[in-house]
């Protein structure tokens, strides 16, 4: 495993193929919990954690159970069970290990199960035929990309409080338009890495 390849996967998942702004994955928390930078960051942190764990767990299950016994039709069911139980496990783990962190992340953890960025990431691993280490980096990069996008939009929405937004555009619509402008900016990265 060369360093350049690790950086390549990281750069491509964080910037070029940003999960939120380029692949439309994880839009629900992106719109729902991005009112402040602080909560956005906590959500991003929790998601990154779950994503990294998920990438490892689903890689193992996919390679040693689903592919070994030729059961590809169970993939969606198996992956979603893994994600749901992992989220539950992470919740219990954090609760016991660090009550302070649990207080910050607590309410966001159950939401992560239905974050389509996680399942989307897990399904892209077999598509790209990554090995174990590559999968881990892919999962981590996807989480960092998600965090970047949600923290940026959180900052923009904090500033938005001082501007005069028409009543009909308040809330989701203006956030979507902001995200559109950010997606345009992220297009600038598209020539950076060719995968």
């Amino acid at each position: 495993m060369e360093l350049s390849q690790i950086l390549l996967i990281l750069g491509s998942t964080v910037l070029v193929n940003n999960f939120v702004l380029m692949q439309f994955l994880g839009i629900c928390p992106f719109l729902g919990v991005s009112r402040q930078v602080e909560t956005s960051f906590s959500m991003g942190l929790a998601t990154t954690f779950v994503m990294t764990m998920t990438s490892a767990a689903t890689w193992l299950i996919n390679t040693f159970i689903l592919e070994a016994f030729n059961l590809p039709f169970l993939r969606y069911v198996a992956f979603i069970i893994v994600i749901a139980s992992l989220v539950q496990f992470v919740e219990m783990f954090i609760k016991n290990m660090s009550p302070v962190l649990y207080k910050t992340l607590g309410i966001f953890l159950p939401l992560i199960t239905t974050n389509c960025a996680i399942l989307g990431m897990a399904l892209q691993i077999p598509m790209n035929e990554f090995n174990f280490i590559e999968s881990l980096i892919f999962g981590f990069g996807a989480g960092v990309g998600f965090t970047l996008a949600i923290v940026l939009i959180g900052g923009l929405r904090e500033q938005l409080r001082f501007s005069d937004v028409p009543e009909s555009l308040q809330g989701a619509p203006i956030t979507l338009i902001l995200a559109g402008i950010m997606a345009m900016a992220f297009m600038g990265f598209s020539g950076l890495i060719a995968m």
């Binding site: 956030t175 979507l176 338009i177 995200a179 559109g180």
Partner: peptide
């Protein structure tokens, strides 16, 4: 081409939701 790219998707949907909100208001 912008309309088929991600940016166009976000902005079109944002404007559509805004219009529906306006009608409902």
């Amino acid at each position: 081409i912008f309309m088929i790219l991600p940016g166009g998707a976000f902005i079109t949907l944002g404007i559509l939701v805004g219009i529906i909100n306006l009608i409902n208001l």
